[in-house]
Simulated assay, not measured.
Amino acid sequence: MENTVLHKAATRGHANHGWLDSHHTFSFANYHNPDRMHFGVLRVLNDDRVDAGMGFGTHPHDNMEIISIPLEGDLEHKDSMGNTTIIKKGDIQVMSAGTGIQHSEYNKNKDRLTKFLQIWLYPNKRNVTPRYDQITLDVAKRHNKLQQILSPNANDEGVWIHQDAWFHMGQFDKGFSVNYNVKKKGNGVYAFVLKGDITIGNIKLNERDGLGIWNIDSLAITANSQNAEVLLMDVPMAL
């Protein structure tokens, strides 16, 4: 029997630090909700807006797979592995924190804000050697289809992580429908609507709503508005 959990956009945790406006789908920092600790190995889904010229100072992470997806503007990344890079809309960035890294993230633009998703997944291997990667995706490849942006396999499309997880992004015309087949038995799918209105199964979702579904083999997705965008995160349910 399929199971679902629906997180409407307005029910998320919210922290406004002035320069940073962040919505938390799952418990994070000062937002603690015992019913929203994680969805399987998906631990953090933060929807962040960073003001011009502002950002996160150097801070540590360990034993977490950290994925950043810019939605608007760009973000400068620096880390203890010696990487200094810019990620922008159309890019995806991954860090395996492993035994420990330090990094900072800044919006260096003086005239516009940056919007990005920060996603954390528990890894399936602890204390790996830290690593960093980022790629630029061909956004045209997600028009009326699901473009794979992340997988467990280094030679597949998108970035790879230390977890049996697959991420896809799609941008659909109104009325377009697509089926998604779950990649691994026992995985669930967490769908996050980036833009517009979408129906998954028989559940209607609006912008920034999240829906987790498990005990399924596939799910049907239909766009109810023009240029509707969705992120699908296919993740193990067992920690």
Rank of each mutant, 00 (worst) to 15 (best):
T4Y: 11
V5C: 08
T11A: 14
T11S: 15
R12I: 00
H14I: 11
N16M: 05
H17W: 06
L20A: 05
D21Q: 14
T25G: 15
T25H: 12
F26N: 10
R36P: 00
F39L: 09
G40I: 02
V41F: 02
G53D: 00
M54K: 15
F56Q: 07
P60E: 14
N63L: 01
M64K: 11
M64W: 14
M64I: 14
S68I: 01
E72W: 11
L75D: 01
E76H: 13
D91S: 13
I92V: 09
S96Y: 01
A97C: 12
R112T: 03
L113W: 12
T114E: 07
T114C: 13
P130K: 11
D133V: 00
D138E: 14
A140F: 12
A140P: 00
K141M: 04
R142Y: 05
K145Y: 06
Q148T: 01
S151G: 03
P152D: 08
N153K: 12
N153Q: 10
A154S: 10
W160R: 05
H162A: 10
W166M: 02
W166H: 13
F167L: 13
V178A: 13
N179A: 09
K183E: 12
A191D: 03
F192C: 07
L194Q: 04
K195W: 04
I198Y: 03
N206G: 14
R208Y: 06
L211K: 04
L211R: 08
G212V: 06
W214Y: 11
S218E: 11
L219R: 03
N224A: 04
N224L: 09
S225H: 00
L232E: 01
P236H: 13
A238W: 10
A238Y: 12
L239S: 14
